[in-house]
Design a protein around this nucleic acid. Structure first.
Length: 878
RNA sequence: GGGCGGUUAGUUCAGAGGUAGAACGCUUCGUUGACACCGAAGAGGUCAGUGGUUCGAUUCCACUAUCGCCCA
């Protein structure tokens, strides 16, 4: 078997994925005796294409899933797709329009048929794409929020809420998107600072020559004013409260009222009140029993206004109103003003506040349930900084407008009697009014907010409201992983839904991760043209490189990630490095059979003990990081360990025995290499499943694919501080010799003799014992102990040891002296701080014994090196 | 206005109450029997500023500056 010199992901990924799928390794079965690990996938939109945010989200989930599968837990990753009301409807609408077909001509039923057709055709795109990333979800259990059973769960939830009095239908001011033509919930509105104008308008007092000036950013809404409001304590206007003004342009008589909500600092301190088109004014109007007058309709045109303005768009009306006010002497002044304007999250159109009859979910008690779940730690949110944000949102929440004027979605199961006005909420179609017997019944035309249905995700996907075995075994799920941007939209709503309907938290832990941005930290957007397609990245660098990059850029704090090609390249190189290290090991396993090895009686050498110590230390660390949800640090540490220790040192050291004559020694090192490689592949597998699985298929004497193999156990007995410290010294000698050659400008491979002397017995022993390896790695011909400095040598100091290397030509020793002096200065600086600490009685009293001991040891070591350095510098003075 | 986060090597970012790290880039050397998607050796840092807590702060706290995000 001969492996290619370079890892080529294109030859591997599809093949491996197919192998996993055919082996049913992603499938989960109910196993009551086994501890489980369950993640429900945040369902991507059915219209969605895999973007980099999904790539991050899926990667993190897959890493946890794969680890836990290897830990032997019954692991379920339940995937799904969201029907995404507005988004999907507008996609299909647009597509039909391009063929000259209008939605309204088609009618509801025909249109929905078209959407379903579209869904069948394109709805699985993102699923297929996510497979390229290595997603190991149980695809048999794929759920769609409009599946028959799921839809039933949504209706069930609606009916239960209704029967409990938590859902009600009412006329409220809502956020209306004139383009999507639907109501929006509060969080679907995005506010942006915009430059506008502040208009000061005179409102003449009734039966008086006096007037009051109000300030507004939306003069056109004055046509719908039903009052003027001032703050009750505002001295300027106290005498006007209760009086009336005559509304300019309209001539309507409206009162001046006093209300705490008015900000005396804003404008003139007097504001116009337009109850039907401003949420604040709506509240004021309710408090003062003012009239409501709709002057803007659902396509943002003027209604119920005097002739000249009737039918104008709001923009046209503004121009006309301002013009007329100016001409008639009512406009006092116009100022530049920056204010925040609400936009539709979906289409970015400016949102129009309108009074409308909608269904609302009462939030007070549900928000309490959601809060309690987190306060009591039933649900743990990580990073913790989001907990406060979560509480704040729930504390200030307003009732949730859940109806949407769309066709695509879960149709509201409410029926209205056209004769007596009775409202009937029912899962089954209603034919006859139970109150008056009329058959003139109409179902509500609207559908539910998509988030209303996805709020049920953790249990509706498992069969709720039926008490299924799945629900019993898999609920509550273990971990939810999602971006912090949908903490309110989705996470909070799932928590109260779970608490409310299941009486149990939907997941024990929520891990919120950051968002992926471009290399300059900017949001990826079409207008900036900085969107990267993960599929392109996979094509170019491989799925493993993409996954590893995303994982290693993750932090416990859930910081946003700035992705760049440089980082992908580094990860791709890492994958290749692992490929080649493995290739080396596999090429050198000839004639090896682990069954011939007595594992209990291995003749371990210095570097074996060192490496096994490091390996077990890292294994332990890895598990700890994982428990802390710190995949980023785990990935970064793995990178350093595998590249910096396994490849750079252990593999190099292993060559001594592999290429030596001692068969027994060779077998031992083969065994350690074989074992270590397997362990490393397992540690890496969740991060880079494809390459590791491919490599593992070439590893001899393993019986199952990596995905199903057991994660290695930590063997504490191998962790050994002393051996690691000794290794640092030996490696230091090798580095020292290499850098002497570099100082001479010689290739590392130049064969030269070397000598050493030391004031430390342990160091002498180590050099003697590991002589062969030092020679090999430093490319030195010999390294002999000497009492005195030999002639014509260049030297370096490592701890208490001086290493001399023969000088093949004349060399200016000033460089050596400079190097020594620089090193001495560094040591002196450090010694100074350590000494002052150790002489400080308060330090000795208060610092922990470990810290003091560490300082003392470090002090000894530094003193040792210092003494040697000083003697050499003195020599050089002569 | 309220809240949150960032400010560390030329660049992008980790990190941790007790010796400041990585990647990329840069300099020098190198194709030695895994790998040039590589190896070896190096240069490069008042850890934004000011106070405080502490035996000890780049790390914890407060404030300031600055950039960014969320909410009103």
């Amino acid at each position: 078997m001969e492996l290619a010199k370079e890892y080529n992901h294109k030859d591997v990924e599809d093949k491996i994925y197919k192998m996993w799928e055919e082996g049913h390794y992603f499938d989960s079965e109910i196993s009551p005796k086994k501890e489980n690990f369950v993640i429900v996938m945040p369902p991507p939109n059915v219209t969605g294409k895999l973007h980099i945010g999904h790539a991050l989200n899926f990667t993190l989930q897959d890493i946890f899933i794969r680890f836990n599968r290897m830990f032997g837990k019954e692991t379920l990753w339940l995937p799904g797709i969201d029907h995404a009301g507005i988004a999907t409807q507008s996609v299909v609408e647009r597509e039909l329009l391009s063929k000259g077909i209008k939605k309204d001509d088609l009618g509801r039923e025909k249109f929905l048929e078209e959407v379903w057709k579209w869904k069948e055709k394109y709805g699985n795109t993102i699923i297929e794409q996510s497979k390229k990333l290595g997603v190991s979800a149980d695809w048999r259990r794929l759920r769609f929020t409009l599946d028959e059973k799921y839809a039933n769960a949504v209706l069930e939830a609606f009916i239960r809420y209704y029967n409990e009095g938590l859902l009600y239908r009412g006329e409220r001011i809502i956020n209306w998107c004139p383009r999507c033509h639907t109501a929006l919930s509060d969080i679907e509105v995005e506010y942006e600072e915009e430059k506008g104008k502040l208009y000061y308008i005179k409102y003449p007092l009734e039966e008086s020559d006096d007037y009051i000036v109000v300030a507004t950013t939306r003069p056109e809404t004055m046509l719908g004013d039903t009052a003027v409001a001032v703050h009750p304590n505002d001295e300027r206007y106290k005498n006007l409260i209760g009086k009336y003004v005559i509304l300019p342009l309209v001539g309507r008589r409206i009162p001046i009222v006093a209300d705490e909500a008015v900000d005396p600092q804003f404008g003139t301190g007097a504001v116009k009140v337009t109850p039907s088109h401003s949420p604040e004014d709506f509240e004021i109007a309710k408090r003062h029993n003012l009239g409501f007058l709709d002057v803007i309709n659902d396509v943002a045109r003027m209604i119920n206004v005097p002739e000249p303005y009737l039918g104008l768009t709001t923009t046209e009306a503004r121009e006309r109103v301002v013009e007329d006010l100016k001409n008639q002497g009512y406009l006092v002044k116009v100022e530049d003003y920056v204010h925040s304007v609400g936009h539709c999250q979906r289409c970015h159109t400016v949102v129009e506040p309108l009074v409308s009859k909608q269904w609302f979910l009462s939030m007070k008690s549900l928000a309490e349930e959601a809060k309690e779940a987190v306060e009591s730690q039933k649900v743990k949110i990580t990073p913790e900084k989001w907990v406060k944000v979560y509480y704040d949102w729930l504390n200030n929440i307003r009732d949730w407008c859940v109806s949407r004027q769309l066709w695509w979605g879960h149709r509201i199961p409410a029926y209205y009697c056209e004769d007596c006005g009775e409202v009937i909420v029912s899962k089954e179609p209603v034919m006859k009014c139970p109150k008056c017997g009329s058959t003139r019944i109409k179902q509500d035309e609207d559908v539910l907010d998509t988030w209303f249905s996805s709020a049920l995700w953790p249990f509706a996907t498992l069969g709720w409201p039926e008490n299924t075995p799945e629900l019993n075994y898999y609920y509550p799920t273990t971990l939810l992983i999602t971006g912090y941007d949908i903490l309110f939209f989705w996470v909070a709503r799932m928590i109260w839904s779970g608490m409310h309907f299941m009486k149990k938290e939907p997941f024990y832990t929520v891990m919120l991760h950051g968002l992926v941005r471009d290399e300059k930290g900017r949001k990826m957007s079409k207008s900036l043209k900085n969107i990267v397609d993960p599929l392109d990245l996979i094509e170019e660098y491989g799925a493993d490189a993409l996954r590893f990059t995303l994982a290693s850029l993750t932090t416990v704090g859930g910081q946003d990630i700035n992705l760049s090609k440089e980082k992908l390249k580094a990860s791709r190189n890492f994958v290749n490095k692992i490929w080649n290290a493995s290739r080396f090991v596999l090429m050198n396993l000839e004639g090896f059979n682990p069954n011939e090895i007595d594992e209990e009686n291995l003749d371990l050498e210095f570097e074996d003990k060192w490496f096994l110590s490091r390996l077990n230390r890292h294994l332990k660390m890895e598990i700890e990081y994982l428990g802390n949800y710190d995949l980023g640090e785990a990935a970064r540490k793995l990178y350093e360990f595998v590249w910096g220790e396994f490849c750079d040192w252990y593999i190099e050291l292993s060559k001594v025995r592999l290429y030596g004559d001692d068969e027994k020694k060779k077998k031992t090192v083969q065994y350690i290499l074989w074992k270590s490689l397997s362990t490393i592949l397992k540690m890496l597998h969740p991060y880079m499943p494809f390459a590791t699985e491919e490599i593992y298929s070439y590893v001899p004497f393993v019986d199952k694919p990596l995905i199903k193999s057991e994660f290695p156990k930590v063997n504490e007995a191998f962790i050994d501080d002393k051996i690691e410290k000794d290794a640092d010294f030996v490696f230091g000698i090798i580095r020292g010799l290499r850098s002497l050659k570099a100082e001479l400008g010689l290739p590392v491979a130049t064969p030269l003799n070397a000598y050493f002397n030391s004031i430390d017995e342990n160091e002498i022993k180590l050099i003697k014992e590991e002589n062969e390896k030092i020679l090999k790695l430093a490319h030195i011909t010999s390294l002999k102990y000497v009492q005195k400095k030999p002639e014509r040598v260049l030297k370096t100091v490592v701890q208490g040891t001086t290493v001399y290397m023969e000088l093949p030509f004349d060399f200016d020793l000033q460089k050596e002296k400079d190097r020594f002096i620089k090193k001495l200065q560094e040591i002196d600086a450090e010694l100074k701080s350590i000494n002052s600490r150790l002489m400080n009685p308060v330090f000795l009293e208060k610092a922990t014994p470990e810290v003091i001991n560490k300082d003392k040891e470090r002090q000894k070591e530094l003193e040792k090196t210092k003494a040697v350095l000083l003697s050499h510098i003195e020599d050089l003075e002569v």
